[in-house]
Each structure stands twice: as structure tokens, then as C-alpha cells.
Amino acid sequence: MENIKTTMSDPVHLTLPSPDPEPVRGCAGCVELANVRDRARAGGDFTTVSDCNVFLRRHPQGHS
């Protein structure tokens, strides 16, 4: 006979999302990513918003 779990899992505790990173002053790539992020948010494309935030946070390593 299989061992089947019949109780509920512990609750999941979520935190608030981090604030959007700011574009680095003087970096054209950062400015473009911030513009894409703004357009994506306006269009409800939160996957692209998240992707842009990741790239902005990676500024020291580049935007690839």
C-alpha cells in the first residue's frame, strides 16, 4: 500500500516584490530597458517587466 499524505502543507509566506531598479545614469542600454519595461507594464506584460528588471540589476555584468 502506498503512503499517501492526507494533511495540508504548511502555509506559503510571500514577501512584497522588490522595487524596480533604476537605470544607471549615462547608460543607453539601461535607459532603453527602462523604456521597454514601462511599455510592457502599460500593456500588462509583466514577464517582460520582470526580465527588464533582471537585466537592469545585472548592469555591472552587461545587459546580454
Rank of each mutant, 00 (worst) to 15 (best):
M1G: 14
M1E: 01
M1V: 15
E2D: 12
E2K: 13
I4A: 06
I4W: 00
T6N: 02
T7E: 05
T7S: 10
M8D: 05
P11Y: 00
P11W: 01
V12W: 01
V12I: 13
H13Y: 13
H13V: 14
L14C: 06
L14M: 11
T15N: 12
L16T: 01
P17M: 03
P17W: 09
S18D: 15
S18F: 06
P19L: 09
D20I: 06
P21I: 09
E22R: 11
P23Q: 11
V24P: 01
G26S: 07
G26Y: 04
C27P: 04
C27F: 02
C27M: 05
C27N: 14
V31W: 06
L33G: 06
A34P: 02
N35Y: 00
N35P: 00
R37Y: 02
R39F: 00
A40H: 10
A40S: 11
A40F: 04
R41V: 03
A42K: 11
G43D: 11
G44P: 01
G44W: 03
D45I: 05
F46I: 09
T47M: 05
T48M: 06
V49Y: 07
S50C: 00
S50I: 03
D51Y: 09
C52Q: 11
N53A: 07
V54C: 03
V54R: 14
V54H: 10
F55D: 07
F55I: 14
L56T: 06
R58I: 00
P60T: 13
Q61W: 05
Q61A: 10
H63R: 09
H63N: 06
H63E: 04
